[in-house]
Nucleic acid binder design. Structure first.
Lengths: 333, 333
DNA sequence: CTGAAAGCGCTTACAG
DNA sequence: CTGAAAGCGCTTACAG
């Protein structure tokens, strides 16, 4: 009666648990946090655990954060553009592994308008990971609220690129077209200005691979599927003798293929097109799109491992993202 | 020198600001929080503001949350299935409006495996909103860590469905096919078990609208674009004289259209197909897909308004989500 | 093996 | 108009 009344009125605290278990508040903390270096008798441990369970005790995380100086939050800042389809699997895996290590992964999409107070100030995460790099202002804001571990951190020349498989996909795309006899290649970029750094990086990788295969220069054009740019690009490429198109992603590949169909260019005979990501559209499109897939679950686990070690201050010197790109051949090549 | 040394060593606190401004810590709080009912002289106000700016003071949110009992976080629990494309715009708008009111919107995707500690226990948000309803266990967990405002809350028979425009889209889809002379309709559902409640709700809305138009019963089939189910469905429908297909979303519509094309059924002459969401695939698909679009920005603002009022304990009695569905006619109908 | 106590950095009545 | 002080619920040396 007294207990249920208290439960209804206010939140159960460690003091309540201590009272029921007949120990001090400190001991409650030691048991529940499995504090290392403390030895607790089995009887005490059981009494505390039992009392905590019975009262439905949930530690107050704000108090924990304030007292310990750690929030057990890992913040992952996503870019302001729609991330590829498979990225959800990546995040799910990363989240699961971090959770096992006692951390929560919170994702945060930067808003175009800029908040009064960015999310990292409100959450004060133990570490912040960015899909792309941070601006000096952002770094200053994070440092200002006590966040010590920021990646990628420009000051440290951090080698890791969290967009991870930047070059593996484009390389595979080029190799695939090459193996099927295509020599004059073009790159279909994404006109949306937001993911421009990723577009740039993928294009660079494709161009370099083409160069190393002694192929002629790769013409790049920016495709916006809402206007006629795909038609223009396909016409221009067709006139210039292009026989293979490397697309930034499956959406762009679909736009190129659909423009070609409308114009009357045969896919893949006249023009082979390869996408990137193996998103649902690649399966459903007619013709189905050849593309490149990643083992995103493994990548997610890899990121989590990296994040945990960085957050706890023991970086893995030789760590590399476990990238594995797989070619998926369908009808467009 | 002394200041920059201190800055480097530890975080700037209200005590530092108070010392520099020559006031008490309480006054710093009053100024920075614009505490109502406190009158602060202009001179003091300016000194505090100036000192805070100069020192780069950021309030410690854990301490604020602990002392005030409010975290200023609104948690939005998303379902475990890929939300429709346009939902990002919805979230962006909602986030922006909440931010203006001093709240941060954190989104959280339930993980299939279940965490050791769900995110609401770690963040202790002031309120939690679910896209779908919560299980009794989840409700208990939230209540246990002191979260008072939960929506939808089964105990209150909360009328609001946060998936919002559940029936408006399907109704419009059916009406569109009806207006173009289609009488024998079918519903193409999404085979993925995860969004089943949404599939069910949309199908119900479509069936009811068809019924109210005196149309014959709507046959429902579950489409998985990774197997042959679309082919089977299209064949069966064709044999049964179906002339119009209402699809759960654009992905499913694309799968149906592509199956029809492969089989040799003409779109839209033999079979009209309408999607839902106006996602990019609807534009890019050949033929381009007719679909239904929502004014998601307005919906997002509407949700934010609702959330702010609920969070601050003054529910709007007559509030309705500002749903406006628009028909987008393309080539598939 | 366990407890008393200081401290984390705020907010908020309460005095003056 | 402003300050001294209690309190939020934890963690963590430090004693014993």
């Amino acid at each position: 009666m007294a207990v249920s009344e208290a439960t209804a009125k206010r939140r159960v605290t460690a003091t309540d648990v201590a009272a029921v278990a007949g120990v001090s508040r400190a001991t409650v903390g030691f048991v529940l946090n499995r504090t290392r270096g403390q030895t607790i008798s089995e009887g005490t441990r059981e009494r505390v655990l039992e009392a905590a369970l019975r009262l439905g005790y949930r530690p107050n995380s704000a108090a924990q954060a304030l007292a310990s100086g750690r929030s057990r939050i890992v913040l992952f800042v996503l870019p302001d553009w729609p991330v590829e389809y498979s990225f959800r699997i990546y995040l799910d895996e990363a989240s699961r592994v971090l959770d096992e290590a006692g951390y929560s992964l919170v994702t945060y999409t930067r808003r175009p308008h800029g908040e009064t107070r960015p999310l990292w100030e409100l959450l004060t995460p133990d570490s912040v990971f960015g899909f792309t790099s941070f601006s000096p202002d952002e770094i200053a804001s994070m440092r200002g609220c006590g966040i010590r571990r920021i990646f990628p951190d420009p000051a440290r020349q951090e080698p890791l690129d969290l967009s991870l498989a930047v070059s593996a996909g484009p390389r595979l795309q080029v190799e695939h077209l090459y193996e099927h006899g295509r020599r004059q290649l073009a790159y279909a970029a994404f006109a949306d200005p937001l993911p421009s750094s990723l577009v740039q990086a993928r294009h660079d990788a494709a161009r370099e691979r083409a160069h190393s295969l002694d192929l002629p220069p790769v013409d790049i054009r920016y495709i916006d599927y809402r206007d006629g740019s795909a038609d223009d690009a396909v016409r221009a490429w067709h006139g210039a003798g292009v026989t293979g198109v490397v697309a930034f992603n499956d959406d762009v590949a679909a736009a190129v293929v659909s423009a070609a169909i409308r114009i009357g260019i045969r896919i893949p005979d006249d023009l082979a097109v390869i996408g990137h990501d193996d998103s649902p559209i690649a399966t459903m499109f007619v013709p189905a799109l050849s593309t490149v897939r990643f083992d995103t679950a493994t990548l997610g686990r890899g990121f989590a491992e990296y994040a945990i070690n960085q957050t706890e201050g023991r970086p893995l010197p030789d760590w590399r993202p476990p990238v594995s790109a797989i070619l998926v051949r369908r009808e467009s090549t």
